[in-house]
């Protein structure tokens, strides 16, 4: 257990009355992009919420840079350098874009915030011309960009990205993923990326986990996962159509 920036061990967590994650263990090594794939309701968002402290785990441990962080308050976890960019553009609708960004740096008291704002806006030039506008009046794609930019303002070591592609046009999805790659390369920020779009996620990620009904059913380097028959079939829409005509049985996932 050495080296990984984030270590999750046997984590169990409820989402409302449902035990949504049932014993998850995963590692995010320093400087890596790790993807968590899975369908709706697999427990991906619950996993991120538990790591960022918004949900309290039932059992298990989360260690960040070697120190236990499970059951801490969310603001303490942000201060340690983990920022959660939630799915669905959870911005502050009535605050201006500039104020939203300032709130991203809420936990910081250093003087570099202004310089960081410039740096962050360099990734998202669209936001620059809308700084004074209420964030609720931005388009969906711009709100998603604002959410990522706001997260960067916390100067995280690890970014938890929840479905950044959700509800965006293919072109915007490209743009967001390009930025994620750039952030990772230029800032050296580690990323735990949750995605339904397996193809995209495995393109940027170094390592991947596949979640189903609260458990991890498959993991491996991104390259290997891309080659895996299960992933191709169930997440990438692989080419089974030729064999299908000859068979009466449905292909089964190898982990069942």
């Amino acid at each position: 257990m050495s080296g990984a920036l984030l270590e999750v061990r046997n984590l169990e967590s409820y989402y409302g009355p449902v035990l949504a994650i049932r014993g998850i263990s995963l590692d995010v090594p320093e400087g890596a992009i790790v993807a968590v794939l899975g369908a709706n309701g697999a427990g991906k968002t619950t996993l991120l919420k538990t790591i960022s402290g918004v949900l309290t785990p039932e059992k298990g441990a989360v260690r960040f840079a070697g120190e236990p962080i499970a059951r801490q308050e969310p603001d303490a976890i942000v201060r340690r350098g983990i920022v959660h960019v939630p799915e669905g553009r959870e911005i502050f609708p009535l605050l201006s874009v500039a104020q939203n960004l300032a709130m991203g740096a809420y936990t910081r008291a250093d003087r570099a915030v202004a310089a960081d704002t410039v740096r962050v806006l360099d990734y998202f030039p669209v936001l620059l011309e809308r700084m004074a506008q209420p964030a609720g009046t931005l388009s969906g794609g711009q709100q998603q960009m604002l959410a990522v930019a706001r997260g960067l303002m916390a100067r995280p070591k690890l970014m938890l990205l929840d479905e950044p592609s959700l509800g965006l046009s293919p072109m915007l999805v490209r743009a967001i993923f390009d930025v994620i790659r750039r952030i990772h390369q230029e800032q050296g920020i580690s990323v735990l990326l949750v995605e339904q779009n397996a193809q995209l996620a495995l393109e940027v990620a170094d390592f991947g986990y596949v979640m189903e009904t609260g458990r991890i059913v498959l993991d491996g380097p991104a390259e290997a996962l891309k080659e895996s028959r299960d992933i191709q079939e169930f997440y990438l829409g692989g080419s089974q159509h030729t064999a299908r005509d000859d068979r009466r049985w449905k292909p089964r996932k190898s982990w069942r």
Binding site: D75, V78, Y106
Partner: peptide, 22 residues
Amino acid sequence: KLGIAMQAASQNQLAAYYMGIP
């Protein structure tokens, strides 16, 4: 900053948590 954080906490409580606003 505190005043804006107060507004932020009411507009989107969950997002306020995510940003480390107590």
